[in-house]
Amino acid sequence: MDGSYGGGSRFVMKKHKINVTGFLKYGMLLVIFGYIILLLVQAGGDAPMNTVKEQVLGAVEMKGMKAAGTQDLKKYYGLNANDFEEVVLYLPDNVMSVNELLIIRLRSEGQAEQAEAAAKERLSTQKDNFEGYGVNQSKLLNSAILEGRGRYIFLVVGEDADKAYSAFRKSL
């Protein structure tokens, strides 16, 4: 009797255990599902580059800067354009200008840290270049806006930096 009771108990326990794992595996799917929805709701920052570019360029006067290419990105930021999904870069059009715009659409979030570090480095180099003699330039560089949002890294330097930033935020 004892023996059969013991066997039954183990059976009940085993069955209970199976039910727990069975319940958990379905419960976890719900958690994963909820997490992805949360990510989608909170993500933002995923508008197509064309939309972002259009709205940012439309919001500001592009004076003091000119469109730059992949080699300039490598030269001034140490970044390879091929590593990212898309890059928009405008650099100063003369030696006394500091106006600059960089928008990077990342392939993965893991790239954000490095891309942001490169943008900070560029900003720091520019500040060193103008420190001590370019009062206006230093002022603009100190009020530069650098932000990572969703899949984008955004850097703007210039009189219209606030307008550009506002357009960037709205475009996402």
Binding site: T21, G22, K25, M28, L29, Y35
Partner: peptide
């Protein structure tokens, strides 16, 4: 995502073995 993926697969492994 990684943590929940680990827990999910851990539980599935137990479930399959069970």
């Amino acid at each position: 995502l990684m943590v929940i993926s680990i827990l999910f697969n851990y539980v599935c492994g137990l479930d399959i073995a069970g």
